[in-house]
Design a protein around this nucleic acid. Structure first.
Lengths: 167, 167
DNA sequence: TTAAACTTTCAAAAAATATTGAAAGTTTAA
DNA sequence: TTAAACTTTCAATATTTTTTGAAAGTTTAA
């Protein structure tokens, strides 16, 4: 496997995986490209490399910046904007965990809490609804605490966490 | 908030969340419905409750069974098939972790391994590709080990894991 | 100022995904 | 066997999501 084949394989795998995580293909591919690029890339570079339109590139770069995993960079004496990704995969994971907690987990926890606190009228269906949403609430809460713990952690948390879990 | 309001809120929240996890809306809603239903439901019940077609119901029930979180049940003397969900949320989480590892993480790890093992020709771009895919490979691997550890664990792992991580 | 060099926006088009429903398939009771 | 009571399949359709590209917007140098 040569460089180009490997690069394409990586970019398309990352793209496909992104979809499964609620991130669209173009967004994931731009991220993949920046992650393995030793130099910051311009919008033109990205459009060219991934064969996508200017509008698409612009919108997805913005989203990646909103996620806090891609940054604008300016080269001295150049008007054009360049982009880089967070290169440290630990930091990347931390940032993603943080955002997913904020965007998905926390709103869900709020609703589970509301639903699980309805008045119990003693019917089987109400009792079951309360019981199950309470259980989900507790689990989602634990997950959230874990994820935020991890976010506040210094380098290499995942390896450390692993060691703790295994022993 | 009364029972019906709470039920609908829960089902639609679960449905919306499902999309973010690579599970479609109908599939997530069927699962939500079964999770809070004290009795097994027939296909008719599900179609009626969620206002979806027979075909849709049939296909999504099958997928839920493939995920190992919904089961067929037969009532004595009845021809019709009934469905229940795994009711224990810990077991549910374990099952989902197991399936996601198998379907997503493991294939990705394989590709990261292939890509990170290409011949290093010493150019900056090749070196960067190898470096980053190696780092992702290691992280994905650790995550996978963690998830499988969790799968093999007895009840209440998430709470235990949490305690370990916090201290 | 002006205009060149860029980036962003957004309505329309394309692509991908989910849903329907009727026909085909299956199972069981008689 | 047959036929009733179901479930599954799948081509057609509907819906949702993504992408395009050109116009509008912004910034900077002169």
């Amino acid at each position: 496997m040569d460089y180009n084949e490997a690069k394409n394989k990586f970019i398309s795998t990352w793209g496909a995986l992104g979809t499964l995580w609620g991130i669209n293909k173009a967004m994931a591919q731009i991220h993949a490209l920046l992650l393995i690029s030793p130099e910051p890339l311009s919008m033109e570079d990205i459009m060219e490399e991934l064969q996508i339109s200017r509008g698409n590139t612009s919108m997805n770069l913005r989203q990646l910046m909103d996620w806090g995993i891609v940054f604008k960079e300016n080269k001295m004496g150049e008007r054009k904007e360049y982009f880089t990704s967070e290169k440290d995969v630990q930091e990347l994971a931390r940032q993603i965990a943080k955002e997913r907690s904020r965007r998905e987990l926390q709103p869900t926890i709020k609703i589970l809490n509301d639903v699980s606190n309805i008045q119990d009228d003693g019917t089987a269906k109400t009792t079951e609804l309360i019981k199950q949403t309470k259980a989900l609430h507790e689990m989602a809460n634990n997950l959230d605490i874990m994820m935020n713990k991890v976010v506040g952690q210094e380098q290499n948390w995942i390896t450390k966490a692993l060691v703790k879990l295994i022993k």
